[in-house]
């Protein structure tokens, strides 16, 4: 199995995604397009987790903390500034800076990976209970009320430089897809750079990487911040899609979903988690309309089954299967050629 992907593959998939963007409005209903904007936000969350976990080996259980911080930062900034373009960057920065501070304590304290998982999860849960309590009128940042349990409204995206020119849902969909593709190509590129390869080697063997002279703490901290910034970007698109952000973005369920997408899609790939997000989202939302199977129940079973039976995820399993088939066919051809050569030699 390859340890890191190639950039060409990333570009091919990005091309397919552009084709999907162009034909989606004529295939899907208008309502589905609006839902898709939310799912794109969630899939960017999955992408960020795939980057930090799959390529850096940093198991961040509370990735939704940065997702939520991005969403809240965008909403608060957009209400105060009155435009969305700058607010998006503020959201990315807020998530990345928060991650950098938290990451400093975690990575420079040499906290082991399991503790890291639990600490990040706890941070997310504490943010959850903190934001739920901000319901009074005294909890506000500038003009934006935090709103406690009901959350706060998220202004829609608008044209850069013109705060009053809101984008229509269809345009928002195009912008979101563009952001997803850019984020995907960026992460795909990042893992092929020297920085990305050092991160992969930290995942494979941290001590050896350290002995080769790399400051693994710094690399992990950088990767953690970058991925959190991407998660924050996902949060922006999600809250724009839903038009509001509630403390539920920090909930245990949200963190669990991100993990499930990455596990199901395959943690060593970047496209797997994105695809898994789309598939599982529409699966669970169709389950949500009936009563017999609770969505939590189904997600729980999926998670247990995948950990026990398909720990690599769907996409790598399929890729391995194809690769093995190709290898077998190649071996058969080679055998045939050898036989032929032997016949000639005898003849």
């Amino acid at each position: 199995m390859r340890l890191y992907g190639t950039f060409n593959g990333t570009l091919v998939i990005a091309g397919l995604a552009i084709i999907f963007t162009l034909i989606a409005p004529s295939v899907f209903q208008f309502f589905t397009i609006i839902t898709l904007t939310q799912v794109i936000g969630l899939s960017i969350l999955a992408l960020s987790l795939a980057l930090v976990w799959g390529f850096g080996g940093i198991l961040c259980f509370g990735q939704s903390a940065f997702f939520g911080i991005g969403a809240y930062a965008y909403s608060v900034a957009a209400v105060n500034i009155g435009g969305s373009t700058g607010s998006i960057f503020i959201a990315i920065l807020a998530a990345a800076i928060f991650a950098a501070i938290l990451g400093y304590f975690i990575f420079y304290g040499k906290v082991s990976d399991v503790y890291l998982a639990v600490i990040t999860l706890t941070v997310s849960l504490i943010l959850y209970s903190l934001m739920r309590r901000t319901s009074g009128p005294e909890y506000k940042i500038g003009k934006a009320l935090l709103g406690g349990f009901n959350g706060t409204g998220s202004p829609p995206l608008n044209m850069p430089g013109d705060g009053s020119a809101m984008l229509f849902p269809m345009q928002t969909f195009y912008v979101s897809m563009a952001i997803l593709i850019i984020a995907y190509v960026f992460t795909g590129w990042l893992v092929t750079t020297k920085f990305g390869r050092v991160c992969v080697s930290i995942r494979e063997n941290e001590v050896r990487t350290e002995l080769l002279g790399y400051d693994t703490r710094l690399y992990k901290l950088c990767l953690f911040s970058i991925s959190s910034g991407i998660a924050g970007l996902g949060g922006v698109l999600f809250c724009v899609g839903v038009t509001r952000v509630t403390p539920d973005v920090f909930s245990l369920g949200q963190s669990a979903l991100a993990i499930i997408w990455v596990i199901v899609g395959g943690r060593m790939t970047l496209i797997g988690p994105i695809l898994a997000t789309f598939v599982l989202y529409f699966l669970t939302s169709s389950l949500g309309s009936q009563q017999i199977f609770n969505a939590n129940l189904v997600l729980g079973i999926i998670l247990v089954v995948f950990v026990l039976i398909v720990p690599n995820g769907v996409v790598p399993t399929i890729m391995n299967w194809f690769e093995r088939r190709r290898a077998k066919r190649y071996a058969r051809q080679k055998e045939r050629r050898m036989k032929l050569r032997k016949h000639r030699a005898i003849g």
Partner: peptide
């Protein structure tokens, strides 16, 4: 089945937690 595989245990027990919530809600 998961002793010694700490991260898999974490994930599996997380799935279990969702499962319990789902069953009790049902």
């Amino acid at each position: 089945w998961l002793y010694g595989r700490m991260i898999d245990t974490l994930l599996a027990t997380w799935g279990l937690s969702l499962l319990f919530i789902g069953i009790i809600t049902s």
